[in-house]
Design a protein around this nucleic acid. Structure first.
Length: 483
RNA sequence: GUGGACGUAGCUCAGUCGGUAGAGCACCUGGUUGUGAUCCAGGAUGUCGCGGGUUCAAGCCCCGUCGUUCACCCCA
């Protein structure tokens, strides 16, 4: 009998038992980080109508679509397909259009903001290379809409910060540190204003951003000729081809400062740097954009604000912000840094308990404005977890070691309601089925109660708890003991 | 879609000027040793990716093809 060897399709992976565990180690970490940060899991179809992607994904992605058609409809459908050169359906190359479609369809009944994550397979018909395959897993984390009745600049920054926080919580949990990975942020609005001062016209902005995106990849002279072809002003070309970002526009500070401020509260600012050369390739980004960059790898994650995409899909005008992270680059990075367990350690790590879907802690201020920053500080501590002395004093410590945490990271939520009334905030916690309610009256005056039993919990020594993890009556300990 | 590199044992790879197909690891058998570690002896293993060409002779040179990989494009 003649046998024929059939290879797997180019750019796909056959996962044998250990490979599946490695992949699950990553997807577990994704899920864990998003749940802890208060994002709900959603899922969409793995193929969509092709037109969903022609609306706004960007030129490049359209050329990389895996085409799909049902095979029904006989010759007529086939003729149409051949004539158009495009099938009615496409395997999804990214999630954001699906997300925008899903949100727009139910916009009125959805909470504000809506915090969603999803992880699953995506497909792009490009030539495989390091960090890039034709089928890959991607984790998407998005925050859509703003807290109601709030000042929108502040809220925008808060939602940006929460999305970025989620990515940082993931990096921390996997043992990646700020030395090996940086989050570079920029603001397209501020850059657009700056470009206009250089004489770039409104209708040239898109090409200007495309060139900015390629600034580091292309040599100065080809950059120059591309810019000249687009008839961009010489002052812009000069800015573009001066390799250093030393001429970075100062006005960046105005728009990104609110974001950096928000990030200071949860200790994210040390991970972040402003970088006026970050532009992002996708056309739908409108304001803040960011990339997580590691030495020697392509972007580990990338995302930003896309404020008019929901409207484009028939929903109400709604600001939104999110990022995507692929499993291929992340896996490469973990391998290179020795941060991927093997053998028994891998099995144990994958089988270790996952973050609670039910919110464990719900943190609110007592109504005093001064305490609002403390809410974010404490929330960050709870979501991050507190590492144990034994683990920290071990020079060979690995992120998956079971003695890592003195207080394990926990699913922690905050209220997005503008009310200061404690009963309303408690009702919000109850609506979200939180288990413990935390009310901050001051740094060393934190009240804790069990929502299930309606009992107030008090510290033996002080009567109330502390925000600071170093304090003996840190509120996180009290919750961990009662889990 | 464009360009480069690579394809030899289960794995990682060496193979010079074209002249009988190699090593390490892993595996199997036996021995030593108070472990499933170490050490000793022995053993099995190949369509040299595939097809064609040049040659007395091709793993090596040439053409084609398939596959892998890296870079570009684009992006997670």
């Amino acid at each position: 009998m003649a046998s024929k060897k059939i290879n797997p399709p180019k750019g796909t992976r056959d996962l044998y038992p250990e490979d599946v565990l490695r992949q699950r180690y990553i997807t577990n970490a994704w899920r864990d980080a998003s749940l802890r940060c208060g994002f709900d899991e959603i899922a969409g179809p793995t193929f969509e109508s092709t037109e969903l992607y022609s609306v706004k994904s960007g030129e490049g992605i359209l050329g990389e679509l895996f085409q799909a058609f049902s095979g029904k409809g006989g010759q007529e459908t086939l003729d149409k397909l051949v004539k158009k050169g495009q099938a009615d359906f496409a395997l999804r190359p990214e999630f954001t259009p699906t997300l925008a479609r899903m949100y727009a369809a139910h916009a009125k009944q959805l909470p504000k903001p809506c915090k969603w994550f999803t992880a699953g397979p995506y497909f792009r018909a490009e030539r495989p290379q390091r960090g890039r395959l034709r089928e890959f897993l991607q984790w998407n984390v998005d925050a859509i809409g703003l807290p109601s009745e709030a000042d929108s600049t502040h809220s925008n920054a808060q939602m940006d910060a929460e999305v970025i926080e989620c990515s940082v919580r993931l990096f921390e949990s996997l043992g990646l540190c700020k030395k090996s990975l940086k989050i570079m942020i920029n603001d397209r609005n501020a850059m657009a204003e700056f470009f206009k001062t250089l004489g770039v016209l409104e209708n040239q902005l898109e090409i200007a951003f495309t060139l900015l995106d390629r600034q580091a990849k292309l040599p100065a002279d080809s950059l120059k000729s591309l810019a000249e072809d687009a008839q961009l002003p010489s002052s812009f070309i000069e800015y573009l081809t001066q390799s250093g970002s030393s001429s970075a526009p100062n006005l960046l500070t105005n728009d990104l400062d609110a974001l950096i401020d928000m990030c200071t509260n949860c200790n994210l600012d040390q991970w972040m740097s402003k970088d006026p050369s970050i532009a992002r390739g996708l056309a739908y980004y409108t304001g803040t954009v960011f990339e997580a960059l590691a030495d020697g790898e392509r972007a580990v994650a990338g995302g930003g604000r896309y404020d008019n995409l929901i409207e484009l899909f028939g929903g109400p005008s709604t600001p939104a912000c999110g990022f995507g992270m692929g499993d291929v680059v992340l896996g490469n990075l973990l391998d290179d840094k020795g941060l991927m367990p093997t053998g028994a350690e891998l099995m144990d790590a994958v089988a270790s308990p996952q973050a609670s879907i039910r919110p464990v802690a719900f943190v609110v201020p007592n109504g005093d404005e001064d305490n609002e920053a403390l809410v974010h500080t404490l929330t960050a501590h709870l979501r991050r977890g507190i590492e144990s002395e034994t683990w920290l004093s071990n020079d060979d410590r690995k992120p998956w070691h079971t003695n890592r945490y003195a207080v394990a990271p926990m699913h922690t939520r905050i209220s997005y309601k503008s009310t200061r009334k404690i009963n309303k905030l408690k009702a919000d916690a109850s609506d979200q089925h939180a288990k413990f309610f935390i009310e901050i009256h001051g740094e060393d005056k934190v009240e804790l109660s069990n929502m299930d039993t309606r009992e107030s919990i008090s510290s033996d020594s002080h009567g109330s708890f502390h925000v600071d993890p170093k304090a003996p009556n840190y509120v996180g300990h009290a919750i961990a003991e009662r889990m």
